[in-house]
Amino acid sequence: MATETAAAHGEEGGLVFHPMDQFIVKPLFGDGAVHWYTITNATLWMALAVIAIFALMVLATSRRATIPSKGQSIAELAYGFVYKMVEDVAGKDAVGFFPYVMTLFMFIVFANFLGLLPMSFTTTSHFAVTVVLALAVFLTVTIYGFMKNGSKFLGLFWVSSAPLPLRPILAIIELISYFVRPVSHSIRLAGNVMAGHAVIKVFAGFAAIAVISPVSIVAITAMYGLEVLVAFIQAYVFTILTCVYLKDALHPGH
């Protein structure tokens, strides 16, 4: 049945809803086709993320208080958290990339947490989104690496500490792992978020059966707790890997 088109899903289903339905991109107004400019539910939740970030980072800090309010404390905490990460992992000369890394971190964190609201749409569960994020990092690292280091950037693939006969083999492995980076970088985030949400939906589907429903509800609660953790950890992991890759661009060679 899975080979059939989606139109068949509705009729065949024993489950009252399909676990993957929550990820469907729909136009927000009307039922028309989704063009590139259409305002969809993805647009809505991205806009909400922007508003939330604006509220936290701009409105909450508008008083510029020396003794911060709660909101300002959180904004400062986020600032310090990402700034320290960039400085510690990518090095002191990478602080120029700090606004960029901060943008990625704030967007992913807010998209993940907004996606945990019931009935919401999780933008970061889509490969379209995470692939763009990961490719942006990949291209930044590659272009900046070549701009700053020139051909020395290729030293990243030439492991000079290894014995000479091994080096070409290692170079191939390094090259492959370098190009797999954006793949794993993007799929890790989308996969984690999607998997968690889908599992919650699967349990929610079982909740309709009276006998299983208590177990199901407990399981949903537990999964939700795990997802809250995952939402933050995946944002953290995405950001810290960005910093690790930036370090390669700034200081190639092992």
Partner: peptide
């Protein structure tokens, strides 16, 4: 289960018709 018109195959993530929209807004 209700599916929007022209809904994706099983995985909405792999419906490449919607990628342009998401990438633009992202």
């Amino acid at each position: 289960a209700e599916h929007a018109a022209g809904s994706a195959p099983g995985m909405p993530q792999l419906n490449f018709d919607h990628w342009g929209n998401q990438i633009f807004w992202l």
